[in-house]
Design a protein around this nucleic acid. Structure first.
Lengths: 117, 117
DNA sequence: AATTTAAAAAACCAATTGGTTCACTATTGG
DNA sequence: CCAATAGTGAACCAATTGGTTTTTTAAATT
């Protein structure tokens, strides 16, 4: 697919892999949702979950690797906050994709209903 | 996160896991992009890729499990086509999420610029 | 009927994921 | 200084992923 109309060969594909992969786990989506309410310490982030803080820390790391969360060290605590800009890459892919698909669907619908082609 | 404003407890989370996970691999996004051009046999789908047809078949299976592709058996060939409706779930999550985030950002911006709060 | 073709199934493998526990490093507070 | 707190790092584990090759099934072709 290297010569497809969608490709850009600018390294954003790798980002998309990381971003979609990060979004594919419920815990991580939960963390992101939580962070829309405002910045949070790691330990606070971990509280609602029935898993070790170490596990949550790993999830945060994955979000951070995907660029979706930034972690600022402040004393002995880590403060996480959203960085939604990279998320836009994912949204854009989906929107573009849907545009193409809807277009195709419209063509099909036009064809089936014989309205204007 | 079971009592979060985002949750719906209606099983769509599992779908989101499958959908985002399916989207997190370049080959699978490539297949979807290819399918926006129209339906395709599995063997044709596999041609551009430097991997076995079995591997591509597995990718298609993952897309199919996520509901993004439907496979119709026609004689000895399998014909794949898009089913973009489930994709809307992913788009909706991202859009909703961005809305919340942008909202938060606006609040922050207002606060920082001291314009109206 | 025999051969080729399309695709899945099965068995296998290395690498990754998602979790654990335990040890360690800082940092804060008494 | 000492104890408690916040967090990471390392080692470990079972399950999953992404690929392979080989086998099998079923349909099309000759």
């Amino acid at each position: 697919m290297s010569t497809n109309w969608f490709s850009d060969n600018s390294g954003t594909m790798d980002n998309l892999n990381l971003i979609f992969s990060a979004l594919s786990h419920e815990t991580r989506r939960g963390i992101l949702e939580r962070l829309t309410l405002g910045e949070s310490r790691l330990s606070d982030l971990a509280k609602p979950y029935d898993m070790s803080q170490t596990a949550v820390s790993k999830h945060v790391r994955i979000l951070s690797d995907a660029g979706l969360v930034t972690v600022e060290r402040r004393g002995r605590t880590r403060h996480c906050r959203l960085n939604a800009e990279p998320m836009k890459q994912a949204t854009d892919w989906l929107i573009d994709y849907q545009a193409f698909w809807l277009n195709q669907f419209d063509s099909l619908a036009r064809h089936l209903t014989n309205k204007e082609d």
